[in-house]
Each structure stands twice: as structure tokens, then as C-alpha cells.
Write a protein that binds this DNA or RNA. Structure first.
Lengths: 339, 339
DNA sequence: GTGAAAGCGCTAACAA
DNA sequence: TTGTTAGCGCTTTCAC
């Protein structure tokens, strides 16, 4: 059962006894139409249930007032809050947003790209940390559509980026640990691949250096940011037999893994080990012990990113190529004084 | 900096020395074109970097091969896995999917509706539990576009539904508790508004009745399915002073709240209280004690829903109006023998 | 203030 | 096997 044929602008025009041009004007530039005419058109629209065909309109105007959001995983705990910020700002400026879940699949990225080149979307928000597959590899750099990266910066491509200040946040986090008397602080989540992890590790190093604490390489453990990686890291720590008094984890998911491992070994947390996370995902307040962490201003990140993208679309030169927002220390129960 | 003007079918035709109709055919019905011609076209496409304008194509064909997924909250822990199932099946059949996050905002729902009536999407998957605002209220029922509900059924509208068998699942869950010797079993999450909660409560009642256990109304507590509601419910239980030996929670989020409350009161779980959830969201295996629950076959729900929708689109009469998939009991550590 | 007509980029009759 | 052409539904000159 197909839904019935919809009214077109011609139906409205016929019913109102005017030309389609007038109907179009009555809708888009009401002031340019005589009051009486406008009234007739409005009534005809109501009677026919007409709604303008966005596709025909976009084809003609060569723009859609739509923004496409490319995300590798909409289930990422950081995603949905940033999204709301993006939507809030877009909607305020008359834009709509659509989400494409790529699962990091190149084919899917290319598909969504077609969305852009058809003007079904005017701009792009990237959560992926890389250019959509199809760009950048063959010198097509020149024709990048307007886009802004979020959450994860895009290396080696001048894509504007809006995100939390990972370096600074990690520094503050580590300093908090130090201020509580910790000096043997592990870093869990070193990664060559992920820029975010790298920056957080830098912040960690900076804080230690600032406090005159030398770095013990045995306390720096690889991890990809998953809970499982956190658990594995903690186990590894015990194997290496070089124990810290506190763990600074690259993110909350990792911290959760560490807590699980420690709980399983029946340690009394946070008395025996302090754990610090980063992100403040929703679950962090529910773990036992509840997680002390750095909160990302996700909503504001979304708003700022969209604002930047819309500036780009308006042809304005953006004020800055990168906007870093401050993370906020959230003190809960997983960090305690040492010594 | 706008990205450069893209090649159109005319550019390709000119370069290949053929008509645009031939180019179109070479792309869409390659067999109807001479080998040599096809070769020339293919090469011209490669040289120009042409990619067909999906919008123009859809406008002309009156269909887009796109499915719009309307979700009130993409952060819902059940969402992303079902989504992957939807995408898998759609992609297998040559369809793409796009996600619209509605936040339950009527305005937003109406906006996305326009997407359908412009043929930018051919069908709809509803996570919202209700028809998009704009439908159904004024007898416009007749022109509902093809759609399938998922996760949450749509009451009072014949929208096909694919989901877990909540009634049956809840019955199994409760019977598991009974089989462990529990007879005073609380139900947390009664809701007049949410169909899913209602069905799960029914399953609970059925299981008790089947075991000849009479229902104590003081053990049935309201809740909207949030963690906070679970916490509040547990607290209320203590105020009422009618304690159960086990809690069957309407979902995992609620169960988590109950566990938090019980942990905070320093009960030894699961020795003193057993807790059973429903859904098996990712966090359930991380809580302490890890949660015994009913697992929703989310991936398969997504696949089945998309399959059904595509049947509808193909004009086929669907075999069934409702597909209920079985939930699976996942035994972890939050339920233990009583007595 | 309003209308006629061109054209956005494409597909599908129909002709050749 | 290929080309010509109408037209999807709309916006926007350009006349009037």
C-alpha cells in the first residue's frame, strides 16, 4: 500500500487561482506578495495539505540546509551528548542534521560522501578522526566540502577541530593525583594510533615533570580505550610487579576495566589504589567506587562545532582552526589521599 | 571555499562522445550498451570523477533507496546494536540508512516527515513508540508511508512491529528466580505509559500465578526505566518495610539503580538479595555483582525489521504484522539460591 | 504584484 | 544499440 500522491505546488496554484511562481513567493518571500493573494495561497496550502518537496527544492537551489554527521559508532558514550549540542545549534540556524553510522567501513563512508556531492547535505561533521574514504588520497584535497572534526581530530589535513583540551585536562587530572600525595602514577592507554590518547599521555608526562617526578616506563601501559584494555592493563601491571599507587586512565571505559580487575582481586578501593578517568560518561557515577574523572563539555563542543561549520558554509573565514574547551575535574570516590 | 563544481552526466557524455541517455544506461543497465561504448563511458567517468547526483536521480525516479530511522535518543543502550542489524540488512538489499534523532520533539518529527514526503527516504523505522507528529491525529491515517516499529510498539495504529517477546521473556526471568527458591519477588518498573513495561509486568504476574504465588501489591513499584527510578524504587521498598528476597527489574538500567541502592546500604549481594534485569546492555557484565538478565537479540531484531520494511516497500503483503523474538537468559552473579 | 519559462541533473519512453 | 525529449517539483530571472 503506497501512500497517496502528494499535493505539488501546481495543485496549490490551481486551487488558489495563481501561478506557481506566486505560490513559491508566498512561501519563501511572503512580503513580496499582496496580502489578499497570500491569504488565498495559505488557504490553498492548508486545504491540499501541501508541503514543499525538499528534494526538488534542493536540486534547484543547490543546497539543502542539511548537515550530515558521520560517526563510526553512534553507541560511543561521548556521541549522543555532542550530538544534542550539534542539533541545538543547527536547529537554531535553520539547519537540520542527519546521522550516518559508518562503522569505519570505507564503502559506507563513500556512500555517505555521495550524499554531500548531491547537495543532500551542505556540510559534514566528522567523528571519525579521518577524512571519509575517497578524499585525500589522490590529490582531490582541493574540493573538500565544508567540514568540521569533533571528538577526534583529523591528522594531516586542515580540517577545523573542536574538542576538549586533552593535554590540559590530562595535566590537571594527573596534578590532582599528585596533590593527593601520589608519586607512583600509572598511565593506562598509551596508543600510537589515537591522537586523543597521545595528547592525554603528554599531559600526564607534563604534570609529572612539573612535580619533579621521573617517569617509570613500566607504569605506562598500552591500551585502545576499551574496558577490556583497561582490565588487561591492570593484570599486566601485576605481572610486571611494578605497582603504582594510582592509575590515570586514558578514559572512563578504561578506568572501569581497571576497577573491575582490582575489585576482582579483592583490593579495597580506593584505599589501596586510586583510579582517575577521563570523559565522565554516564556510567562513571554508578561504578563502585564512583569514578573521579575529567568531564568533557560535550554539549558545548557540539554547539561550537556546528557554529564553526555554519560559518564555513556562510563563506566566512573561521576565526580559529581549532577550538579547545576546558575539561572539568569531577571529584567522586575513586581517588583518595596516599601516605 | 566552496568545493569545485562537480561533473554532471553531460560532461561524461561529451567526453565519451555519446548522449546522456547512453551514459545513464551504461551505468544502470550495462548490458543494454555495446561493449565498446561502455568502455568509453567508463573511462570518461573515471576521468571526470563523475558520481551520479542522487538527488536528481531520486527526484526523477520518485524513490531514493534510503530508509530513515527515527529514534528519540540515539544514546539509548538498545539503539546501536539494533541499528547495526538494520544497516546490515538494508545494505545487503541495496538500501542506505539515515538516522534522525528526534529527542521526542514534535517539531523535529515533523521535519523528518518532510524527508519522507520528498522521497528522500522511501520508508521509516520507528524507535519512538508513536507515529511521527503530524500523522494519525486528523484521519490522515490512509497515507502512512511504509514503516516498521522496533524496540517500542506503536499503540492504536497498525504499524508492523518487530521486537523481543517481552511477556515471554519476563515470564522466563521470573521463573528463573522462582526456580532458585524465591517466593517474595518484587517487580520494579510498573508504568502505565510504556507498553514494554506493561508486557514485562504481565510476564512477571503470569510466572507467579503459574507457581501458585499470590501477588503482594506492595512488591510492585512504579518506575520509568531509568537508573534513578531503580534507586528510588529500592529506597521506597525499605520505607514500606515489605522486603522481597529478589528484585525483577523491568530493565538493566533499573536493575543497576537497585544494585547501587543496595550496595550503598551495605548489603552483601547477591547473598542477601537477588537482582534480575532485562535487556543485557553492555554495562551489565561490569557491575558488581554482574547482572543476571534476559538478553535481547538486538542484531536479529534489526535485521528482521528491515527485512519486513523492504518487503512492504516491494509491495508485498507482509507475512505477519508482528514478529516477536525470544530473549535469552544470561546467568551471571546477581541471582543466587534462596533458602 | 504577478506570470511565463528556463533549468537544476537525471531516467525512461519513444524513435530511429 | 543509441539519441531525442519530456518531465520529476521547485526557484528565479525577466517581462509585463
Amino acid at each position: 500500500m503506497q501512500h497517496q500522491k502528494l499535493a505539488t505546488i501546481e495543485d496549490v496554484a490551481a486551487l488558489a487561482g495563481v501561478s506557481i511562481a506566486t505560490v513559491s513567493r508566498a512561501i519563501n518571500e511572503p512580503t513580496k506578495v499582496a496580502d489578499e493573494t497570500r491569504r488565498k495561497v495559505t488557504e490553498a496550502i492548508a486545504r491540499t495539505g501541501y508541503t514543499t518537496n525538499a528534494m526538488a527544492r534542493s536540486l534547484r537551489m543547490r543546497r539543502s540546509n542539511m548537515i550530515l554527521i558521520l560517526a563510526p559508532d553512534v553507541g560511543d558514550p561521548n556521541f549522543s551528548n555532542i550530538l544534542v549540542g550539534l542539533e541545538t545549534e543547527a536547529s537554531k540556524r535553520g539547519y537540520g542534521v542527519l546521522i550516518g553510522n559508518t562503522q569505519n567501513d570505507p564503502a559506507r563512508e563513500t556512500d555517505y560522501l555521495r550524499f554531500i556531492s548531491s547537495n543532500q547535505a551542505d556540510g559534514l561533521i566528522l567523528f571519525t578522526g579521518h577524512l571519509p574514504y575517497g578524499f585525500g588520497q589522490d590529490g582531490t584535497e582541493g574540493r573538500l566540502p565544508p567540514m568540521v572534526a569533533v571528538n577526534e581530530p583529523v591528522p594531516n589535513a586542515d580540517v577545523p577541530y573542536v574538542g576538549v583540551d586533552n593535554f590540559e585536562g590530562a595535566r590537571i587530572a594527573t596534578e590532582h593525583l599528585i596533590s593527593q600525595g601520589h608519586r607512583r602514577i600509572a598511565f593506562v592507554g598509551r596508543s600510537g594510533a589515537r591522537e586523543v590518547n597521545r595528547l592525554r599521555e603528554e599531559g600526564y608526562r607534563k604534570a609529572l615533570a612539573g612535580a619533579g617526578i621521573s617517569i617509570d616506563p613500566r607504569l605506562i601501559i598500552d591500551g585502545d580505550g576499551t574496558t577490556e584494555s583497561g582490565r588487561a592493563a591492570a593484570e599486566l601491571m601485576f605481572v610486571r610487579d611494578a605497582l603504582p599507587t594510582a592509575f590515570f586512565c586514558v578514559n572512563d571505559a578504561t578506568a572501569l576495566g581497571v576497577i573491575i580487575s582490582l575489585n576482582a582481586r579483592h583490593y579495597d578501593l580506593p584505599r589501596q589504589f586510586s583510579i582517575m578517568g577521563f570523559d565522565d560518561i554516564s556510567f562513571s557515577s554508578f561504578v563502585t567506587p564512583s569514578l573521579t574523572t575529567m568531564k568533557q563539555p560535550r554539549h558545548r563542543i557540539g554547539e561550537a562545532a556546528m557554529e564553526l561549520l555554519l560559518e564555513l558554509l556562510a563563506g566566512e573565514k573561521p576565526h580559529e582552526q581549532q577550538i579547545l574547551l576546558r575539561a572539568e575535574l569531577i571529584v567522586r570516590n575513586s581517588v583518595t589521599r596516599f601516605g
